[in-house]
Amino acid sequence: MDEPSRFMLDGTALPFEEGDTVMAAAARAGRDIPHLCWHSALGPSGACRLCTVRVDGRLASACTTRVAAGQVVESETDDLHERRRLLVQLLFTEGNHFCPGCEKSGDCRLQDAGYALGVTGPGFEEFFPRHAVDASHPDVWLDFNRCILCKLCVRASWEVDGKGVFQIGGHGTGTHVVVNSGSGLLADSALAANDMAAGICPVGAIGPKRRGYAVPIGQRAVDRREPADRERSGEGP
């Protein structure tokens, strides 16, 4: 009777625990579903939609969908990768993602997703946002022109750090991260350099001061990965 419940992911039967999301169960089984805004230690967000899979034939985000016994989930299909490629292009278009001058290049989850999905060009008219850089904090800088609104910093600050430093403000294309301080400046918030929120940004929007370009090209996270991991679907704009 202690046979665990199972669901199907891309043709493989995987075990899960009661209350698991598709993403959590897949991750525990060592299976990667592409994602940007999910983190195992934080609540779900459903913001990036990169983890969109087919659950019993219907599109659903793996990070917010509860898994059920006998469920049939597809993730590694051409049409899903095509949708993910489009999402990544949209994220690149919305921000100022000038990787050549970004200290996160080579260790950036958005960039990784672009490489993995074979994104070669933007495909859309650039937004070129003009958010002011916040360099007020002694140890941490903010460049929200690179922010992808994954809310990892928001959730880490509320759920783990217990400080509520970051918050989402605005609507529609004007949506942006704001700092919860009287002045709106990071220096006047409770953020400390070793807070989870200060280190969790998957892109180059929140970073530590005085530590850019410390890792030589050839030894960054992206350089150490096997090329086969990144060649999911070849070339395509």
Partner: peptide, 13 residues
């Protein structure tokens, strides 16, 4: 990068 998304010169935007 410049031809593709404006590149670093587009920081003047």
């Amino acid at each position: 990068a410049c031809a593709i998304n404006g590149g670093l010169p587009a920081q003047r935007n």
